[in-house]
Nucleic acid binder design. Sequence first.
DNA 1: CCGGTAAACAAAACCGATTTATCATTCTTT
DNA 2: AAAGAATGATAAATCGGTTTTGTTTACCGG
Lengths: 341, 341
Amino acid sequence: MGTKRVTIQDIARKTGYSKTAVSFAFNCPSRISEAAVEKILSAAKELDYIPDPMARNFSLGKHMALGFLLPQKAGTSLGNPYIHSVIKGIAAECQSKGYMLTLIPPLHSSVQEAVKNATVDGIITIGIEIDRSLRGILRRRGMPIVAIDGSEDDEAISSVSIDDEGAAEMQMLKVLERGHRKIAVITLPGDAYSSSSAKPGSTLEKRKAGYAKALKQYSMTLSDVTLLSSDTTIMAGRKAAESILSSFTPTCFVSMSDAVAMGIQEVLSERKMDDVSVIGFDGIEEEEYRTQYLTTIVQSGSEKGRVSAQMLLAMIEDRQSPVMHRTVEYSFQEGRTLGWI
Amino acid sequence: MGTKRVTIQDIARKTGYSKTAVSFAFNCPSRISEAAVEKILSAAKELDYIPDPMARNFSLGKHMALGFLLPQKAGTSLGNPYIHSVIKGIAAECQSKGYMLTLIPPLHSSVQEAVKNATVDGIITIGIEIDRSLRGILRRRGMPIVAIDGSEDDEAISSVSIDDEGAAEMQMLKVLERGHRKIAVITLPGDAYSSSSAKPGSTLEKRKAGYAKALKQYSMTLSDVTLLSSDTTIMAGRKAAESILSSFTPTCFVSMSDAVAMGIQEVLSERKMDDVSVIGFDGIEEEEYRTQYLTTIVQSGSEKGRVSAQMLLAMIEDRQSPVMHRTVEYSFQEGRTLGWI
DNA sequence: CCGGTAAACAAAACCGATTTATCATTCTTT
DNA sequence: AAAGAATGATAAATCGGTTTTGTTTACCGG
């Protein structure tokens, strides 16, 4: 209890050297004599000195931490396995560069407030629109940002995404080439993870465009399939399936998220409708609880996380690296839920 | 580019008041005249002033962040769905108290170094032993700590865990009461998530004791079952299953983790051995990709996270709250993988 | 009219490091 | 031997806030 923190002053006093000398002994030993370094280091060891990281960071103007902005309530965001895998990728990159990863939940329900108070060197967002006000805050704080799944067309903000149109086209083509024509498409709600509306250029619109392209190759259009939007949870997927099945029976469900696809799959399985196909979108990493039985379009969340962290770290260290838009690969993963007609 | 950061000094200069006045205007408006507050706030708005959170934190000696110490490499730790659900619980609690959650990966492979440099107000660990050296660092930094799944018998460190012995007993009883007698038990490797060895008082030993208790009720002992230890991943589970099956065919696999149970389940399913039962341990939250088909003992990771964050926040704010050992509930979750003989 | 008190604000200390500018020495160099 | 360069160390400034201590000025009761 009586033990106060040991500061650089204490080491200085004990050795008779100055604070400067002590600091140099740790960070730049060549600037002082070897004898001094030795004495100072041994005194530091004796007193169990641990430099205060916050004081150092404050002095250096760094934080040694990247921030990941949770798009919704903490529980909801982290409950999304895709977001989770993104975090995994960011964390892996952080670890290799000696950074910490700070999860930033909305503060008093406000993303803006959270960003104002975040003690991080840069921010990664996912699936949210970066509006005028947020931009202003980031600029004034001098904080670089990388947006995952958003702002691909924004020339002021770096982004990481996949080719949503291409991926959606691939997804629909897989379905069509296996002979499916009675198709139910379960779309994302508005914008991917936030509540912002469906804009041109949004993930939702791009994927729809991809679907249209695929359908066109089979002389069909979006109006030949049944569209229904759903939140990206298993429970919402169940509801969507039930809603669709109450009016007609498609030969295949095409979902824009795996969570929804799994909900659909559950309903189908319970109703012994094993001949109805399902294809999802997102995929999940092998190390996790596996979903490989689900046929899906895999976009690697952890790859997105890794790439965005790399970009952000470059921006932090270079002070001005150009705005970049990078896309990561996607692929078709065969499972057991997409059959032939 | 020319835009330097706006500081409290700038507001002071612009309004003609002192730094003190500006600070009070924000944090303690009653200490200065209403006129002054008004002028200062409007000037601040005009200049788009955002107080530097690091400077404030440094001055106040706080961080407004809890740290979660990743027990292994970032990817591995976050790949564990149980750890993930713990993080979810911590994050939810942090959000409600206005704290951030900082994930702390080992720095240069050293947990100690990471803790020395962590800018957080307190630390939550999972499944690691808190040794003498780590204790010293925490003490010198004045950092409170809560240990999940460890140190239940330590009178110096607060902890959160389940009644591992009771839970294991329940698990084994469920198996025995359904008639199984040819049982293969796949245990945790050494200590739960770290590489430290199996000590008396460890999770592993407690669960073994629980198994022994259950077996005793059926006039059996641990030597009547086949024990094999395995890492807690799906792949390791597959290996374990293959290893066991190469020598004999149990009627039931009892696993200390769900990941391993799922690996076993995959092997059984591939070999069409649907009559062999499997029971896991850990469970997973409903919102996530579901594993409900697996029969398991559910220990709520997010509940552990929530409780530990609550305890830690209390320690941070009270400055001296007593060391506590809390346990959270566990339960049996019926799935489709545990049959009757 | 005077001592006491409260109000309103400013000056300066502080948090604990890093870093710049400065000052003695000692060592080269011509 | 004098000028210049390198070495070793230190005082002081800095980072941007908060908090303690001081200083005015105005107001009050006796």
